[in-house]
Amino acid sequence: MAECTEESTMCDPRHALLLQSVQSGLPLVHRPYAELGQRIGMSETEVIGLLSEWVAAGIIKRIGVVVRHRSLGYDANAMVVWDVPDGRIGDVGRRMSAFDFVTLCYRRPRQGDAWPYNLFCMIHGKDRANVLAQIELLAASCDLTDVPRDVLFSRRCFKQRGARYAARALAAS
């Protein structure tokens, strides 16, 4: 049996199989869903149906071309972290996300003095000075000029690929 916990929505082993086979990408062939299905004993209609359900349920955020920012010239990649008062964080997070240069925006737990920041956003730019100007714009627009923040530009990328969610569940089956 594939692992089925309340943390996982992939309780059906066949669903877990599809999840595992699709996360490295769709095959670049005439009928990609049919080919995926063939590998795991599912019909093309079932594959398309399940993926459509997952999109509708928000389990899949989007389907499409996943670009590698760095190789397209976006190598000024900043993780900006802020210490936002808890009562304001939802509002600030949503306002920040409205800027098109913000590609991710998350709340994460503070870790005492070692890490006082609770709001994380990501900016992918081509030019460091421009990214720093965008951060100033965010701070001014979201009333965060007095809030402690830090900017962590990326240096080397050791690994970047899609998540492998079902591997463990299947290994346990």
């Binding site: 996360q23 990408g25 389907i63 670009v67 397209l72 899609g162």
Partner: peptide, 10 residues
Amino acid sequence: MVSRVGPVFA
């Protein structure tokens, strides 16, 4: 330039 064509999971 492209990592893959496919779904991004939440």
